[in-house]
Amino acid sequence: MQKQVDEGGAGGGKGLGMRLLMRLEVRMLALALIIAVTLSFLSPYFLTQNNIFNILDQSVVIGIVAIGMTFVILTGGIDLSVGSVAGLSGIVLGLALKDYPIPVAILMAVGTGAFVGLVSGVLIGYFGLAAFVVTLGMMAIGRSLAYIFSGQTAISGFPSELSSIVYTTVLGIPTNVLFLGLAYLLAWGYLTHTKGGRTIYAVGSNKEAARAAGLNTLLYSILPYVVSGALAAVAITFSVAQILSVDPLTGNLMELDAIAAVVIGGASLYGGRGTIVGTLIGVLIMVMIRNGLNLLGVSPFWQGSAIGGIIIMALLVERLVRSRSES
């Protein structure tokens, strides 16, 4: 340490930083593996090919929402409205399918999600309102509109071609899982290799400094909410395609799973820290736990406690690691 003090961390900083980064991602991966191994011992069915496809399939919806949530959380914000936005977009999709071809209906749904995100983003990024409060308000508005537009009932009877975005395979991989993988690849590329992605990190880490360096902090404070709203709509499209029905309660509590996945994935709620790879691992952990608890016949009433406990544990670990790395 003496040497590092004297030379301002010559040589030592790099090794330490890399090791920390490694530890963060490795730790999460290790946690995922431990859960998988434990579950495979507890339930012989867990590691079957069928169940693995099941897990991947169940990851699609929450996985897509978690990408948007990662964008938002990286800026130091939060989006509590994704569940309601998903519900509202789902209803819009359902209504549009009655009059328009499938692609147009999907575009309308995604447009709805993006628009709600834009409104939240402008209120937060331009007017400086607290993200928590704005998206809380949007959560209530979205759900309310979903009930009004739907006439308080489920909508069904969609064209069966819609389910082809879920039930066809390419090279043996279901299209929805393929889409999930592609989305993560694109998100990873965007966050690590583009001006916009790096600006999102800078905004979350030190908005004042980012602005003073001439970055467009306004645009990149708003954009993540648009992405989050749009992806919530994309996610619900996959869900609707699977069951060919949508009701106004669709997507309820989806924000909980998405935030949990991002936080378990190592992102800091203060912004600036987190990776898309971490989020993917976080999603898998969440889904595996849910899947495992179902296989083990645990009451769905207990599952909430389990998920909640994991979120808090993840936060606690982050705090401990963070304070250690800074001392």
Binding site: A202, N206, A212, A213
Partner: peptide, 9 residues
Amino acid sequence: RFQSIVPDL
């Protein structure tokens, strides 16, 4: 610290 450095980059 507050106007120039972005600590997470």
